[in-house]
Amino acid sequence: KKVLATKVLGTVKWFNVRNGYGFINRNDTKEDVFVHQTAIKKNNPRKYLRSVGDGETVEFDVVEGEKGAEAANVTGPDGVPVEGSR
């Protein structure tokens, strides 16, 4: 997949743990970017399912997906594990 941007910060708009996807709002362009649970690189080690929490700040790369921009290599800021869904 073509990389459109790297090390982008954003805020998780919503994430559905059961369906394994959601959207992140980019801090720079204010665009919403699709995020799938497989894109989460560093999950909260205390959680079994990969997820990001609503309102959580995350860092990610933006790649060209089949339906437009999507997140890849999702971590917390500066590469720490994500907090995950509460």
Results as ranks from 00 to 15, higher is better:
K1C: 01
K1L: 05
K1P: 04
K2A: 03
K2G: 01
K2F: 00
K2N: 06
K2L: 01
V3D: 04
L4V: 09
L4N: 06
A5I: 04
T6W: 06
K7H: 09
K7G: 10
K7E: 05
V8Q: 05
V8F: 02
V8G: 02
V8K: 01
L9M: 12
L9F: 05
L9I: 12
L9A: 12
G10A: 03
G10P: 01
T11A: 05
T11Q: 08
V12N: 01
V12D: 02
W14F: 08
W14S: 07
W14L: 03
W14Y: 05
F15I: 00
N16Y: 01
N16D: 11
N16T: 03
N16G: 02
N16C: 08
N16E: 05
V17A: 13
V17H: 12
R18C: 07
N19H: 11
G20P: 00
G20Q: 06
G20T: 02
G20C: 07
Y21V: 05
Y21L: 05
Y21S: 04
Y21I: 06
Y21W: 10
F23C: 07
F23P: 03
I24D: 04
I24E: 03
I24V: 07
N25H: 08
N27F: 09
N27C: 08
N27E: 08
D28F: 01
T29E: 02
T29G: 02
K30P: 00
K30Q: 09
K30A: 08
E31M: 05
E31C: 04
E31W: 00
D32H: 01
D32Q: 03
V33F: 00
V33H: 04
V33M: 01
F34C: 05
F34S: 05
F34W: 07
F34K: 06
F34M: 04
F34Q: 05
V35L: 10
V35S: 03
V35R: 01
H36D: 07
Q37V: 15
Q37Y: 15
Q37L: 14
T38M: 07
A39M: 07
A39P: 00
A39S: 09
I40T: 02
I40W: 08
K41Q: 10
K41I: 13
K41E: 09
K42E: 12
K42Q: 15
N43D: 12
N43T: 12
N43P: 14
N44M: 12
N44E: 10
N44Y: 11
P45A: 13
P45W: 10
R46K: 14
R46Q: 12
R46D: 14
R46G: 14
R46T: 12
K47L: 10
Y48A: 14
L49S: 14
L49V: 14
L49D: 10
L49G: 14
R50S: 11
R50K: 12
R50E: 10
R50V: 11
S51H: 10
S51G: 12
S51A: 13
S51Q: 10
V52M: 10
V52N: 04
V52Y: 07
V52Q: 04
G53H: 13
G53P: 09
D54E: 15
D54L: 12
D54K: 15
G55Q: 07
G55D: 04
G55N: 08
G55F: 06
G55V: 04
G55P: 04
E56G: 08
E56Y: 07
E56P: 03
E56S: 10
E56K: 08
E56N: 09
T57Y: 08
T57L: 15
V58I: 07
V58C: 05
V58L: 07
E59G: 03
E59S: 11
D61V: 00
V62T: 00
V63R: 03
V63C: 05
V63Q: 03
E64R: 08
E64S: 08
G65Y: 02
E66V: 10
E66C: 12
E66L: 12
E66A: 12
E66Q: 12
E66R: 14
K67T: 06
K67D: 07
G68I: 02
G68S: 04
E70S: 06
A71S: 03
A71M: 00
A71K: 00
A72F: 06
A72V: 13
N73G: 04
N73M: 00
N73V: 00
V74I: 06
T75L: 06
T75G: 07
T75M: 07
G76S: 14
G76C: 15
P77E: 07
P77I: 15
G79D: 09
G79T: 11
G79W: 09
G79V: 12
P81R: 10
V82Q: 10
V82P: 12
V82M: 12
V82W: 09
E83H: 10
E83A: 14
G84L: 12
G84D: 12
S85W: 11
